[in-house]
C-alpha cells in the first residue's frame, strides 16, 4: 500500500518535471497578482503593509485554483485514472498521493516565494515569519479541498467556472485564519490560536477529502 502511494507520488512529480514550463505558470500567476495590487492601490507603504497578508493569501488562493485542474484532468484524458480506480489499491490513498504531489508542484513554490513578496510589500520580520508558516500549513489544505472540486467537475467540458464556484467558498476559513495570524504577528499579538486552527484544518482536510474525492471520481468516471 505504501509502495503504491510512493509510486503515484513519484510518477506525478516526474511528469511535472518533464513539463517544466507548465510548472512555472501558477507561480508566475501568483507573483503577477501580487504585483498588480500596488499598481492598482498605490504604493503607499503604510497601506501596503496593512493589506499585505490579505493580498498574498488571495493570490495564493487564485493560483491554487488555476492549477487545480491538473490533479486529475490529464490522468482522466489518458485513461490512467480508470486504471487506478479498478486497481486493488484503496483509491483514497492514491488520491492522497496525488494531492501531496500537486502541493509539491504548485504549493511549495508559493510557500517559498510568498515571504519574498511580503518583503517587497513592507511586511515586518515577525509578519513574514508567520506568513511563511501559514503558507506552509494552509496551501496543502487548498490542494486537498480542491481535489474534491476537481473530482466532481473533471468530466465536464466547461468545468472551470463551476469549479471556482464550488471551491472558493470552502477556502474561506483558510483565508481567514491565515491572514488573521499574519495580521496578529505583524501587530505583535500572539498567533497560537489561528495557527492551531490552521493545523486542525490541515489534518481534517488531509484525512477527509481523499474519501470524498474518491467517491466523486467513481461517479465522474463511470
Amino acid at each position: 500500500m505504501l509502495q503504491a502511494f510512493l509510486i503515484i507520488l513519484q510518477r506525478d512529480l516526474i511528469l511535472a518535471i518533464r513539463h517544466r514550463a507548465e510548472l512555472m505558470n501558477p507561480m508566475l500567476f501568483f507573483v503577477l497578482v501580487v504585483v498588480l495590487f500596488p499598481l492598482g492601490i498605490g504604493a503607499e507603504a503604510t497601506i501596503l503593509e496593512r493589506i499585505a497578508p490579505g493580498i498574498i493569501w488571495i493570490a495564493a488562493l487564485l493560483s491554487a485554483l488555476l492549477s487545480l485542474d491538473r490533479i486529475f484532468r490529464t490522468d482522466m484524458e489518458d485513461g490512467s485514472l480508470e486504471q487506478m480506480l479498478i486497481s486493488a489499491q484503496p483509491m483514497s490513498l492514491l488520491i492522497l498521493a496525488k494531492i501531496i504531489a500537486h502541493w509539491i508542484i504548485t504549493g511549495l513554490p508559493v510557500v517559498l516565494v510568498g515571504p519574498l513578496l511580503a518583503l517587497f510589500l513592507g511586511l515586518s520580520a515577525e509578519g513574514i515569519e508567520t506568513l511563511f508558516f501559514t503558507l506552509l500549513l494552509g496551501t496543502p489544505v487548498l490542494s486537498a479541498i480542491g481535489s474534491v472540486g476537481v473530482a466532481l467537475t473533471v468530466g465536464l467540458r466547461r468545468g472551470g467556472v463551476v469549479l471556482s464556484l464550488l471551491v472558493l467558498p470552502l477556502y474561506v476559513p483558510v483565508l481567514i485564519f491565515a491572514s488573521q495570524a499574519v495580521d496578529a504577528a505583524a501587530a505583535g499579538f500572539p498567533t497560537a490560536a489561528p495557527i492551531a486552527m490552521l493545523s486542525a484544518l490541515l489534518l481534517l482536510s488531509l484525512s477527509l477529502t481523499p474519501w470524498a474525492a474518491s467517491a466523486a471520481l467513481k461517479m465522474s468516471v463511470s
Partner: peptide, 30 residues
C-alpha cells in the same frame, strides 16, 4: 451550478449529493 453542468441527471444527482455532504461538514467551520 454543478447540477445543471452535468448532463446525465442520475450522475448529476450523485455529484450533488457528495457536494452537499462536503458542504455540511464545512458549514460549521465557515
Amino acid at each position: 451550478a454543478l447540477y445543471s453542468a452535468i448532463d446525465d441527471k442520475r450522475k448529476a444527482a450523485r455529484a450533488v449529493a457528495i457536494l452537499a455532504l462536503v458542504g455540511v461538514v464545512n458549514i460549521p467551520i465557515i
